[in-house]
């Protein structure tokens, strides 16, 4: 057998915190490590991040490997991959968990292939196979029409996890752990691509990933004007407006509003789907919502399979009456 042992979570950071998905990775990582009877390590890379070690330990890690260098302050793909490669070769974990984030999407496969192993992306469930002790990696495929369970036969077994698919532990500040500093020893020759600029595209109002209520429209909305009606309902409910892919492709609403496999994956309290048929690729982005409410003309529409409340009818007639009635009810 290989000399790889233990579970490691790469904890992505933003400003002075670890991302929520890193805490979720530590949550599932803790479970897997306990099942295997092995240790859970965490890896953080950045500038001025050593202070995060205790937070990571309180989320479940036994040991935190820190690569802290001001030159690592901002993400640069080539540099981060070579730093992670070095850390992983030293730590030799059997399982590596990363987040399916903007950067995790490229870090995980490149790191895995560089290490001579393989990655499984966007997992929604992870467990240890009782017999082989290998990691059972469940991920949606065919745009969410199906799920596949994979096993990686080489070590380390690299996975990314889908946002909000795993549970973080309640932080326990009394947990004890160890931190180890690893020097970055940056080698400029590894740098091929360079990020020159990060452009933030401001969206008016509440960000869709932070909103408790999302009102989303599909192809049936038909125009940019149609989305104004969705906006009115969203404002009333202090929510944000989202969309499936066709409205974004048609320029009725900015790409930033796209919910789905290739857009945002969100899990609001309430998701109101207006004139959205509910393709699997769209449902991948919203099926974690607590309550889905659907308005659609077609009673066979896929969206009704996952909706808790529904109206079969033309949204142009349903939505104004619904918004009006809700306004009255909320005022009284």
């Amino acid at each position: 057998m290989s000399d790889y042992e233990g579970v490691a979570v790469y904890c992505e950071t933003k400003e002075d915190k670890i991302l929520p998905i890193a805490a979720e990775g530590l949550g599932i990582g803790r479970k897997l490590a306990d099942t295997l009877g092995q240790k859970l390590s965490a890896v953080i890379v950045g500038g001025n991040i050593s202070g995060l070690a205790q937070q990571i330990i309180s989320c479940g890690a036994d040991k935190v490997y820190i690569v802290d260098d001001l030159q690592l302050k901002d993400y640069q793909a080539d540099v981060y991959i070579s730093v992670l490669e070095k850390v992983i070769k030293q730590v030799k974990p059997q399982i590596i968990i990363m987040g399916q984030t903007d950067y995790g999407r490229e870090l995980a496969p490149r790191l895995a292939f560089r290490l001579g192993t393989a990655a499984t992306m966007d997992c929604v469930d992870l467990a240890i196979d009782a017999e082989s002790k290998r990691l059972l990696q469940t991920k949606p495929v065919y745009g969410g029409n199906a799920q596949a369970v994979f096993i990686t036969e080489t070590d380390p077994q690299v996975v990314t996890i889908r946002t909000k698919a795993m549970e973080a532990l309640t932080p326990d500040t009394s947990r004890k752990g160890e931190s180890v500093t690893i020097p970055a020893d940056l080698d400029a020759s590894v740098i091929k691509t360079k990020t020159l600029e990060r452009v933030v595209e401001e969206v008016a109002g509440i960000k869709i990933e932070d909103a408790q209520v999302v009102v989303a429209g599909g192809r049936g909305i038909g125009s940019a004007d149609g989305f104004k009606q969705l906006d009115e309902l969203a404002k009333l409910l202090k929510g944000a407006v989202g969309a499936s892919r066709p409205p974004c492709d048609n320029g009725w609403i900015p790409d930033m509003a796209q919910v789905g496999l290739t857009g945002k994956i969100i899990a609001p309290e309430i998701y109101i789907a207006v004139a959205i048929s509910g393709s699997s690729q769209h449902m991948s982005g919203c099926s974690g919502s607590k309550t889905i409410i659907a308005i659609n003309r077609d009673k066979e529409a896929n969206i009704f399979r996952q909706a808790r409340f529904g109206v079969i009818g033309d949204w142009k007639k349903v939505l104004p009456a619904f918004t009006q009635k809700l306004k009255e009810l909320m005022a009284s």
């Binding site: 192993t117 393989a118 799920q147 596949a148 369970v149 096993i151 990686t152 036969e153």
Partner: peptide
């Protein structure tokens, strides 16, 4: 293959 497909299934709602 480094990765093997163990099972493929359709989630039920």
């Amino acid at each position: 293959q480094r990765t093997k497909l163990r099972k493929l299934f359709q989630p039920v709602y």
